[in-house]
């Protein structure tokens, strides 16, 4: 920010608001974390207290790690999330480029058709999706989940990215064409680097719902080998007794990978190299 425009009053107010919001947003995470290190009794007696020597316990983590397949669930979630995100970004960006760059019959119609996907939740089609997966033999595979999440993420990705791609200077793309770059090279080497912040935004938007989803793993891939982390954690939630230590520990560990991915994407968000490309 320009020094001359910085006013201490507004700066303090802005930071105050941000800090307050951060506290509110982080509070549930904080409660989960502290309680995951406490004994069952301590969790219920004083849910807000920090673990002390008396109430400290690793029992939750021990249960989770002993539950055998926890690392497999972890791996499944990671594979599904990363591959889905990759496909959403790749195909979303390609479709967005075509819609933004080329004049063809039905361009607008195609854009509207894709936008429709933003408004209609994919879960409405669950029965049909399940039937298709059964017919193609994809039930209980990670592929089924990846396909569904890719479909779910594409509409918004196309919508956001095409708006950004329309903003990329025509002159720049034309300069590339005159220099003999193919349309694919223009897409990958000129346009994608310039819309990287938008790509990161789309990735962050899509990542959390995929990672946290319980619905599709439960319906399409409930088998032991394909369980995701969220589904796997459900074994601790019984109809009559819930192993809260284990649930909280599982949730705490589930936060980590998403956080790592988030840090990775937000670096892309910040890194702006567009300045100086075109006046």
């Amino acid at each position: 920010m320009n020094k001359a425009r910085r006013n201490p009053g507004t700066t303090i107010a802005a930071h105050g608001a941000l800090v307050l919001y951060t506290l509110i947003a982080l509070f549930p995470v904080f409660v989960i974390l502290i309680n995951s290190f406490k004994t069952r009794k301590a969790i219920f007696r004083e849910p807000m207290a920090l673990p002390n020597t008396e109430s400290f316990s690793m029992i939750g983590y021990e249960t989770v790690l002993k539950q055998g397949d926890f690392f497999l669930y972890f791996q499944n979630s990671m594979i599904v999330t990363v591959v889905s995100l990759f496909l959403v970004l790749l195909f979303g960006a390609m479709a967005a480029f075509a819609l933004a760059e080329y004049r063809f019959r039905g361009n607008t119609l195609m854009g509207l058709y894709l936008a429709l996907g933003i408004m209609i939740p994919i879960r409405i089609g669950t029965v049909a999706i399940l039937e298709m997966m059964v017919a193609t033999g994809l039930v209980n595979t990670l592929t089924a989940l990846i396909l569904v999440y890719t479909a779910q993420g594409l509409p918004l990705a196309v919508f956001i990215l095409s708006a950004f791609m329309k903003g990329v200077s025509d002159d720049l793309k034309n300069a590339g064409r005159i220099d003999g770059l193919s349309e694919y090279m223009i897409f990958f080497r000129l346009v994608l680097p310039l819309v990287r912040p938008a790509l990161a935004t789309v990735a962050v938007f899509n990542m959390i719902p995929i990672w946290n989803d319980l619905w599709f793993p439960l319906i399409l891939a409930p088998s032991e080998e394909t369980k995701t982390l969220t589904l796997g954690s459900q074994v601790f939630i019984g109809q009559f007794v819930t192993d809260w230590n284990a649930v909280l520990s599982a949730l705490s560990m589930a936060i980590l990978p998403v956080m790592i991915l988030y840090v990775f994407f937000s670096r892309q968000l910040i890194r702006g190299i567009t300045s100086g490309a075109v006046k």
């Binding site: 200077s169 002159d171 034309n174 300069a175 000129l190 190299i273 567009t274 075109v278 006046k279």
Partner: peptide, 12 residues
């Protein structure tokens, strides 16, 4: 070869 008003240099 073409020279554009906006320069259109490759930023990276």
């Amino acid at each position: 070869a073409m020279v554009f008003q906006s320069y259109a240099l490759y930023p990276h």
